[in-house]
């Protein structure tokens, strides 16, 4: 069944016609060309597809595009203020070598930002490790991701974001 769908993605109103079975991640990647959101598994576990829907992190591979009708969606492409200025969490990943191949990275960053807000900017190592249960990385052994998120939390607080 083809349906029209419209939502706000990274601050812009977008719309399209999709089959009901279209996942949000497919809508983002294939209809909008926002290929920063990745698909790394088919069982809703790897977290490479995490985006924010109405400010909270969700797996966009486990949500129909039509379920996000009218929602405000933020993807990895929508985080940085400008080409020069990264979001503090993105900057923290760069500074702490929190990424290698880059494939899990968008989902990691999106989950991290939600985690920071959920814990009111106060994160210790155990909280971060537990909070990353829904994000898999095969490159970093998580060591530098954990470091990045703890640093990113402090930077977000300092920057008031």
């Amino acid at each position: 069944m083809t349906m029209s769908v419209s939502m706000t993605v990274n601050g812009k109103t977008v719309s399209g016609n999709v089959e009901a079975r279209t996942l949000l991640v497919q809508f983002l990647r294939e209809h909008l060309g926002l290929t920063g959101t990745h698909v790394g598994c088919d069982t809703s576990q790897c977290g490479a597809c995490v985006v924010h829907v109405d400010g909270i992190s969700v797996k966009s591979c486990t949500l129909l595009a039509v379920q996000a009708e009218g929602a405000k969606v933020t993807t990895i492409e929508g985080l940085a203020k400008s080409a020069e200025e990264l979001h503090p969490m993105q900057e923290a990943f760069r500074e702490n070598h929190g990424l290698q191949c880059g494939f899990c990275t968008p989902g990691m960053v999106m989950s991290a930002i939600d985690l920071v807000k959920r814990h009111n900017y106060q994160l210790d190592e155990e909280t971060v490790r537990h909070g990353l249960e829904g994000n898999l990385c095969r490159c970093t052994g998580y060591h530098n991701i954990v470091k990045s998120i703890i640093a990113g939390a402090a930077a977000m607080k300092a920057a008031g974001v």
Partner: peptide, 21 residues
């Protein structure tokens, strides 16, 4: 030295095979 490739990966501008149109 901080990585030069990071900016594109961190902003969703990496280009993996499935991203190609």
């Amino acid at each position: 030295v901080r990585r030069t490739e990071d900016r594109r990966f961190l902003t969703g501008a990496g280009r993996y095979v499935d991203d190609l149109q």
